[in-house]
């Protein structure tokens, strides 16, 4: 459905980084209805890749294809009707209510001076209910907890009614309870609303609990890709993260778990 084709995008090294950031010759595919995790240590190019795939930045070379059509040939509004994005954290410059924030998701479906109609209101309410935030509708967004904010932003993305949802570190700043909630919410959306998900994260266990397949990035290149059980191997974790880890299937959790044990020695 959403395919990255030999993407290259470089930017100068960020603070504390030695090598330039970005991605080099990355290809991957998120199939319709799939949940694909993009994994890698800090600075491995996860966020850059996600922004490229959402069409927020233009690759230096390569293409992003949505249902076979190049994103670069389409307007921002057209792309936004197909792909919604949830950033790691959302800070508002001004106080908007939760309902107003969710209604902002309707932007790509409205004309320049068109006001939100009944259908838009219905979709916003539906999105609030699907994310369990209907009771927050009248609250001011900045007064919410981190987990509540993230669910509201996901609701706004649902109101956008895009078949593809890309999330950048959706749980990075959340406590464990909220992390589990978000994972459950995303699984539910994927199952019930057939939302195709791309999730960038450095949390291996979150990815293991959620994703059907993974792409492992290392210094801007794909180190491994495939079904979750094939990517989450001792070897891959050692190559990409430089740690020895215990990887086992946890019966109670129902998915693989990764426990880092020690920095790997150099061979």
């Amino acid at each position: 459905m959403l395919r990255a084709d030999d993407l290259t995008y470089e930017h100068p090294p960020g603070p504390g980084q030695e090598t330039p950031g970005g991605v080099r010759h990355v290809s991957l595919e998120i199939p319709r209805g799939g949940i694909v995790g993009i994994l890698g240590p800090n600075g491995s190019g996860k966020t850059t890749l996600l922004r490229l795939m959402a069409g927020l930045i233009k690759p230096a070379s390569g293409r992003v294809l949505l249902n076979g059509r190049d994103l670069a040939s389409r307007s921002r509004r057209e792309v936004a009707r197909e792909i919604a994005v949830v950033p790691q954290e959302t800070r508002l410059a001004f106080d908007f209510t939760v309902l107003e924030v969710v209604l902002m998701g309707r932007f790509p479906h409205l004309g320049a001076f068109q006001l939100e109609g009944d259908e838009d209101a219905r979709l916003a309410r539906q999105a609030l209910e699907d994310t369990g935030t209907a009771h927050l509708a009248g609250r001011m967004f900045p007064t919410l907890s981190g987990g509540e904010k993230q669910r509201v932003i996901i609701a706004a993305a649902l109101a956008q009614a895009a078949p593809v949802l890309l999330l950048d570190e959706p749980t990075a700043s959340l406590d464990p309870g909220s992390q589990i909630e978000i994972a459950a919410l995303l699984r539910r959306l994927n199952a019930r609303r057939q939302v195709t998900l791309g999730v960038a994260t450095h949390d291996l266990n979150f990815a293991a609990s959620l994703c059907t397949s993974l792409v492992l990035l290392r210094q801007g290149r794909v180190a491994a890709a495939g079904p979750t059980s094939e990517v989450l191997t001792h070897e891959h974790i050692r190559t990409v993260y430089g740690v020895d880890a215990d990887i086992s299937f946890n019966e109670r959790a129902g998915h693989l778990t990764v426990v880092p044990l020690a920095r790997a020695g150099h061979h």
């Binding site: 921002r76 936004a80 009707r81 950033p87 508002l92």
Partner: peptide
């Protein structure tokens, strides 16, 4: 007010 990236992702030029 959501930020430049978030606005772009919702279709704003």
């Amino acid at each position: 007010t959501l930020g430049a990236d978030a606005a772009a992702a919702r279709g704003v030029d």
